[in-house]
Amino acid sequence: KKIKIKIKVYNPETKEVLELEIEVSEEEAEELAKKLAEELEKKGYKIEEVEI
C-alpha cells in the first residue's frame, strides 16, 4: 500500500513557503517524514505541519 506524505515548510528568513508531496510504502512513510523534517530544520526551515 502506498502512503502520500505532504509537508508544508516555512522559512522565516525568506518568508518562503514550500509544499512537498511524495508517495512511499507504509513502512517507509514515518521514517522518511521524520528524516525530511530533521533535514529541513537543519537548513533553517520551521516545520509547520507533517501529514501522513
Rank of each mutant, 00 (worst) to 15 (best):
L36P: 00
E31L: 12
A29Q: 04
E30P: 11
S25A: 14
I22P: 01
L40Q: 01
L18M: 07
V50L: 11
E41K: 13
P12V: 13
E48L: 07
K35T: 08
L20W: 08
A29G: 05
K2H: 06
E41D: 03
L36R: 01
I52R: 01
I22G: 03
K15E: 05
V17I: 08
Y45V: 01
E41I: 10
K6G: 02
V17T: 06
I5C: 03
S25T: 05
I7H: 00
E28T: 05
E39F: 12
K15H: 08
K4I: 09
P12Y: 15
P12L: 15
E39A: 08
E16A: 09
E23G: 08
A37W: 10
E28A: 08
E16H: 12
L36Y: 10
T14D: 06
V50M: 07
L20Q: 02
E31K: 10
S25R: 11
E23P: 08
E27L: 05
Y45L: 03
E26M: 11
T14Y: 05
T14R: 14
E23H: 13
A37T: 13
V50A: 02
I5A: 02
E39L: 07
E51L: 10
L32P: 01
L32C: 13
K35F: 10
K1I: 04
K2P: 08
K35W: 14
E26F: 07
E27C: 14
K6N: 05
E51H: 08
I3P: 03
K6T: 03
E38Y: 15
E39S: 05
E23R: 06
E51Y: 15
K42W: 07
L36V: 06
E48M: 15
Y10G: 03
L36S: 02
E31W: 15
G44I: 00
N11C: 15
E49K: 12
A33C: 11
E28S: 08
I52T: 02
E51A: 09
P12A: 15
L36G: 00
I52G: 01
I22D: 04
E27P: 13
Y45R: 01
K2Y: 15
E30S: 12
E23K: 07
E13D: 11
K4L: 13
K35C: 11
K1D: 04
E39N: 03
E16F: 15
K35L: 11
E31S: 09
K6H: 08
E27Y: 11
L32K: 12
I5N: 00
V17Q: 09
N11K: 14
E13W: 15
E39Y: 11
K42S: 10
I22C: 13
E23Q: 08
K42E: 03
K46G: 05
E26D: 05
E48C: 15
E48I: 13
K1F: 15
I22L: 10
A37L: 11
K15Q: 06
E31M: 09
E23W: 11
S25G: 10
I22M: 11
T14P: 02
G44T: 00
E16I: 14
K35E: 06
L32S: 05
K46A: 06
E26C: 11
E16S: 09
K46E: 05
V17N: 07
E16Y: 15
A37D: 01
P12R: 15
L18W: 09
L32Y: 07
E38I: 10
K4Q: 06
E19H: 11
E51Q: 09
K15M: 04
S25F: 08
I22W: 11
I52M: 09
I5S: 00
T14V: 06
G44Q: 01
L36M: 12
E28Y: 09
I22N: 06
E30F: 14
E51F: 12
E16L: 10
E16G: 07
E26P: 08
V9K: 00
K15T: 06
I22S: 05
E48K: 10
K34I: 07
N11G: 02
E49N: 13
E39M: 11
E48T: 10
N11Q: 08
K35D: 04
K6A: 03
P12H: 13
A33Y: 11
I47T: 01
E51M: 13
V50W: 09
E41N: 04
N11A: 08
K43L: 05
K46H: 05
A29R: 03
K1H: 10
I3T: 11
E21D: 07
L20S: 02
L20F: 13
S25C: 13
V50G: 01
E30W: 14
V24E: 09
A29L: 03
E27W: 07
I52P: 01
V24S: 08
E26R: 05
E19L: 13
I47E: 00
E39R: 03
K2E: 06
E51S: 11
L32W: 10
K43I: 06
E13Y: 15
E21G: 11
K46T: 08
Y45H: 02
E26V: 04
K43Q: 12
T14E: 03
K35H: 09
A33W: 14
E13K: 14
K46W: 08
A37C: 09
E19M: 15
L40H: 01
I7K: 00
K42Q: 08
Y10K: 03
E51W: 13
I47G: 00
I22H: 09
L32Q: 11
A37H: 04
P12W: 15
K42R: 14
I22V: 12
V9E: 00
I3D: 02
T14H: 05
G44S: 01
K34Q: 09
N11P: 02
K15Y: 11
L32V: 13
L36K: 02
E48D: 03
E41T: 06
E26Y: 10
L40N: 00
I5M: 07
I22R: 11
